[in-house]
Design a protein around this nucleic acid. Structure first.
Lengths: 199, 199
DNA sequence: CGACTTTCCGGAGGGCCCTCCGATAAACCC
DNA sequence: GGGTTTATCGGAGGGCCCTCCGGAAAGTCG
């Protein structure tokens, strides 16, 4: 399973590994419930471990959420190949961003968790960042190659804009507006050559 | 002074008014300091009132921040006229958004506070929302009139996108990226006619 | 000035977050 | 197994957020 080591990559002791899996399982289950907010202490209790143990494995709530849904994020990030195999690059990019935004909006706490990912510079959150950036990079490069995406916009620009859109799409869910904003973004991405802004 | 009444518009009792002013003054002063986080309890204590009093006047941290800087937000929102008097509408819009984003990035807690404003549907935060929407509306309408801004993008679209940009521009401050994103947005806003996205 | 009504105050209290360190248990060696 | 090392656990504790309501102060009327 992904992420079965500690921060230094060392193998975890058996009890630590059990606790880690228990926490992730409980986290997925409790975060999926539709009732009100879920406290980290409640997750630790339900998993049968102390709160200190939860924090040792997952230093922030965001880290826990991202790791709980790590597999699904993996899937989204590897889906780029399938998209590029069947769609023009710009359409593939548009479609992938739509999936991503919809996915984020479908999970409690995911918008905030992935916002932390965007700003992360080290640790596991930063690994996830690299993963997402990588997926976007593949899509963008295909668009550049086919000359359907302007070249003076970088992957970080897109990621930051995307974050703005998924924040809008979640809490409360607003898929319609997200679609409009993605259209606006795509139009900016296709607008000819050098930026025409005044700044 | 702006905001010298309670939620129902009734006149405040004298002690309440004094407390309110004391809280706002202390809030501005403490939020302007550059050291670490400022707790609401610390603000209440410094203002010489109980924590309950603070919450009665300002139901959330965001409300306190927005009201503390209400005058400055007013100024930003009325600056549109001056801009439109001397600049083409699209340039004026671009310039105003730049001011706004830079302003948000310059105040502790302002990014989050104004995010709450964007989502507010009632109360004083919603009033501020109307104010900002009004300013944007003026700029957009000038752009539509002059036929330099596409007409299938509404003011809420811009506000949501703008929020994404100011979130990026603050915490940590990243004015360079904000400028790039504003350029991208402007290019989308000028890109011809009907949206070309696939959604 | 009292007496009465209305508004407002203050801080105790409960919940959550996060840290820290003495206690505990796994892993390893002989 | 017994002893030693080292990783891990657990929860007490302190801080902040926010609510709630008994009590106090301001305003009002005769």
């Amino acid at each position: 399973m992904r992420g079965d080591e500690g921060v230094a990559g060392r193998r975890l002791r058996s009890d630590a590994l059990n606790n880690r899996h228990a926490l992730l399982g409980v986290a997925v289950s409790m975060l999926s419930r539709s009732d009100g907010d879920v406290s980290l202490e409640a997750i630790a209790k339900e998993a049968g471990v102390g709160i200190g143990t939860l924090y040792r494995h997952f230093p922030t709530r965001e880290a826990l959420v991202v790791e709980a849904y790590g597999d699904e994020i993996d899937q989204l990030c590897t889906a780029t190949n399938g998209l590029l195999a069947t769609l023009p690059p710009d359409v593939a990019l548009r479609e992938w961003m739509q999936w991503f935004v919809d996915y984020v909006a479908s999970k409690r706490d995911m918008a905030e968790a992935l916002s932390a990912v965007v700003g992360a510079t080290s640790g596991r959150l930063a690994d996830t960042r690299e993963q997402v950036v990588g997926a976007l990079q593949v899509l963008m490069e295909a668009g550049w190659e086919a000359d359907v995406i302007r070249e003076d916009v970088d992957v970080d620009d897109i990621l930051c804009t995307l974050r703005g859109i998924w924040m809008t799409a979640s809490d409360p869910p607003r898929g319609d507006r997200a679609r409009r904003l993605l259209n606006l973004l795509m139009d900016g991405l296709r607008a000819g050559g050098r930026g025409t802004g005044t700044g």
